[in-house]
Design a protein around this nucleic acid. Structure first.
Lengths: 198, 198
DNA sequence: TCAGTATTTGACAAATTTGTTAAACAAAAA
DNA sequence: TTTTTGTTTAACAAATTTGTCAAATACTGA
């Protein structure tokens, strides 16, 4: 039977290992051998469970995309007030970034290689809802006047870039691991202050 | 002779083509054959001029790093007032980003693979100078109170991320090329408004 | 022109990586 | 136990990619 515990364990274990290598360690070009070694399994099991290297890559990419969207959706359609939603999003993003600092970078490189976006409808629904609440917040003077898309770009940039670019920032500015951890911890407040007027 | 025009032409031409593929088109894993084809030369010329694929990659990486640092240095040590320096930096960055949108992304992936930073001394001099002027600007109430490093991270994030992440943003938010061009053009003002109080 | 030097090319070898297959092995059902 | 099904392994083949080398070509200065 293809649904017993053992089967799933190995299949899921390989996928999780790939996820860790891609998103956690930034090894975007891991070979099947490297993934198998990291998972402690025979290399050909990757072919057995996923047919090909590409199929495994696609699967991890799609999974991450869907997961991210679900996460964002649950915040946007929650009952929190606008500003609290943003705080929640920052918190969640930092938790995610702690485990998978290179995820966004990986997504971009995949999109560059011609991957396409999965759930366009869901994204449309989210953006519509966000735009509505954004308009209200702007009226209330919570945010400087600007296009909602610019606010979204600002927000995601301020959250994701420092995490994704950590090796570059840290090396070029000669910061220790402790320095950078502290800097990241301070960022939530900095980002809120930067995004909101009051 | 190894310094005549023809020699340099081919060598520089190959290097520029590699630069275009990496930084301009985001093809971080271009093979020697792909680079040679794009340059319209025989593949083995890459070995003739650069010994190995790795050496060529290193060279492009180092060149870009030095160029970026020089560019930043000339702004920081110019006679402009603080705020004008930031404006200048944004302008220059967008010009650069227009030709090489994936440069920063490439730098990060290279750093991830263990590349090291070249001119640490020069960077220290720049940071020292920047921190001094930053303190003054903060005293004058031009900027909200924060660590200078946080300001730098904010600035670079707001400038670079939207360019590097363009394929992701554009696809996930269903924006046309024209839409995104316009959004980027509006960003200089948005960034200045976001970074400065007055 | 001609010798000497630098550049370019194609053929080849080596290394790396992926995917297939048949056989061994393990677990569950008959 | 035997059969059946699903899982794991090693050996092999194929594809891709890199690097070397000798021969061919182009260029330079005497």
């Amino acid at each position: 039977m293809s649904t017993d515990r053992k089967d799933e364990a190995t299949e899921v274990h390989i996928k999780n290992t790939a996820k860790r290598l891609f998103f956690g360690e930034g090894k975007f070009n891991a070979t099947t051998q490297e993934i198998a070694d990291a998972a402690g399994v025979n290399r050909t099991l990757i072919n057995y469970y996923f047919r090909s290297r590409d199929k495994l890559f696609d699967l991890v990419f799609t999974d991450a995309q869907i997961y991210e969207q679900k996460r964002t959706e649950s915040i946007i359609f929650s009952e929190l007030p606008f500003k609290a939603k943003i705080e929640e999003f920052i918190d969640e993003s930092f938790i995610m970034a702690k485990e998978y600092p290179y995820m966004e970078l990986y997504m971009v490189t995949q999109f560059n290689q011609g991957c396409y976006f999965k759930d366009e409808e869901g994204m449309d629904r989210m953006l519509k809802k966000f735009y509505e609440e954004f308009e209200v917040a702007m009226e209330e003077g919570l945010i400087r006047k600007m296009e909602p898309i610019q606010f979204i770009i600002n927000m995601i940039s301020l959250i994701s870039f420092p995490v994704a670019m950590r090796p570059l920032f840290q090396k070029s500015m000669r910061l220790t691991d402790e320095d950078y951890e502290r800097i990241l911890n301070d960022r939530k407040q900095i980002i809120m202050d930067t995004l909101f007027c009051k």
